[in-house]
Design a protein around this nucleic acid. Structure first.
Length: 202
DNA sequence: AGTATGATTTCCT
DNA sequence: GGAAATCATACTA
């Protein structure tokens, strides 16, 4: 099965368009120990004018001036760049920088359905009793796929870590809902899931 | 099945 | 100092 990375154009759009479009796409990691593939079943969008976004604090609400330093500055990177962030001091979360060139935004990958390389994922996720628990959360899937700080800043449009269109892309039933684990802007329904998939987070 | 808590690091209203 | 885009475990009922 040959899998080609999605082009940069795909990511050069608002996060609120890219995040739902990522549902059903394949997350591919060509790892030295073997290739892993997962189907994206849950994503969230973050944008500049979004109090829950890491870049929010960079924006001066009075003047509109942007201070591009600190953690959130990575969200101004080129479309398709990986923004890998350490959450709660323990877990790495995988985002794709998704915005028109020069703008700011991200799509967080929250859950995937493992398709290939499951046996490699298991030892990295020894706490997972069921296969579903390997990748049904943003911190879990990065453990399973061995994604961490080394992948921060890499391009998701190139090997070894990238998104790909499935050979047979089928229509995915989408559902949107409020984002998880945030306390601000909780009314925005910027979380998208593959409806009824058993692989979404709890 | 639901609720609470600890782990652990980085960045701040 | 405290919150944060989380997770596993240990409680309660």
């Amino acid at each position: 099965m040959d899998l080609q990375p999605l082009p940069q154009d795909f990511f050069a759009r608002p996060a609120t368009d890219v995040a739902p479009d990522l549902i059903g796409m394949l997350l591919v990691h060509e790892h030295p120990e073997g290739r892993m593939v997962g189907r994206v079943v849950e994503t969230e969008a973050y944008t500049l004018h979004d109090p829950a976004c890491h870049a929010w604090s960079l924006l001066d609400q009075e003047t509109g001036a942007i201070r591009k330093e600190g953690r959130g500055a990575a969200l101004f990177g080129p479309p398709g760049e990986a923004y890998v962030y350490l959450c709660y001091g323990m877990y790495w979360l995988l985002n794709a920088v998704t915005a028109p060139e020069g703008e700011c935004g991200a799509a967080l990958v929250r859950a995937v359905e493992p398709l290939e390389g499951v046996e490699q994922m298991r030892p990295r996720r020894s706490a997972a009793r069921r296969t579903v628990d390997l990748t049904n959360g943003p911190g879990k899937l990065t453990q399973a796929f061995d994604i961490g700080e080394p992948q921060h800043g890499t391009m998701l449009t190139e090997r070894p870590l990238f998104f790909a269109k499935p050979r047979k892309s089928q229509d995915v039933p989408l559902e949107s809902s409020p984002r998880i684990g945030i306390s601000r802007a909780t009314k925005r329904k910027w979380r998208w899931t593959h409806a009824a998939s058993p692989f979404v987070s709890r």
